[in-house]
Amino acid sequence: MSTEAIAAEKPKRNYNALFGLTLLALLVLLWVILSVATPSFASTNNISNLLRQGSMIAILAVGQTFVIITGGIDLSVGAVVGFATVIAAMLINAGVPVILAILITLLVGVAIGLFHGFGIVKMGLPPFIITLATLTSLRGIGLLMTNGNSISINNDAFQLFSRSSFLGIPNLFWMVILVGIPAYVFLHHSRWGRYLFSVGSNAEASRLSGVNVQRTIYMAYTLSGLCAAFVGVLLASRIGIGNPTQAEGWELQAIASSVIGGTSLFGAVGSVHGPLLGAFILATINNGANLLNVNAFWQRIITGVLIIVIVYFDGLRRRGK
């Protein structure tokens, strides 16, 4: 039995790896084409820029993926990013030490995530509704707090961070690695990661098997809120202002990245590397389209078409298996 099991195990692993490799190949292919088509694409400057552009959506997409695996959705992440820039900016301008300001901002993200968990678990609201409510109200709270103005952050060291590089790689991209590796271990090698999948597949069966379903849901939304607040800190550092209307529509980009990366909106299917690759594929398309002077409106259309094509082929292959 065991030899048989080991022998037959490979196809599935290969499938997951294959999908990842296909995405990676697509990304490389895009890079090769763009390097040939435009002189400026392969420049160090542009690549750094691209990595910076993709990094923030990538981190959002990882948090989003946790939620989607449980069968939920987090529409609030873009608003949380904007709100977090305001919190970070206010704290830093008020003279709070940067590290402490960052920690508090992250805690705000955690609190928002816990609130989502509360709404879903205790109030019985659908994830779509509770996070949609947060999406609109957080923007409002942020605007109230700032009177609709942007807050310029007067701390050069804070802003320098996101503009600097380490070992030739932009710091923002290092942040993707900082989030990605623990996220991978968490999702694929920890008990709670397994519970995310089992709750997404069948919450009732998980409950009867002794899984704490409520805690699992709290955890997913808390992690998503945390990732979003972290991205808010990075965005504040990058742009140097706190403004609650920033990151408009980023929740959709995060969901798109996740879905392109093979996450199933029905739950119980997803990975960490998938959404990361998805985010950088989207960033590459936007970046390349800019360089090629493609009308910005077209970029949106291309993104839409890409989502349909990739998810369609992924679905075909899953069914065909």
């Binding site: 599935k12 597949s201 069948n202 069966a205 998980s206 009867l208």
Partner: peptide
């Protein structure tokens, strides 16, 4: 189906 198994998991 409803209570016993996570059908789309291994």
């Amino acid at each position: 189906r409803d209570q016993g198994l996570c059908l789309n998991l291994p």
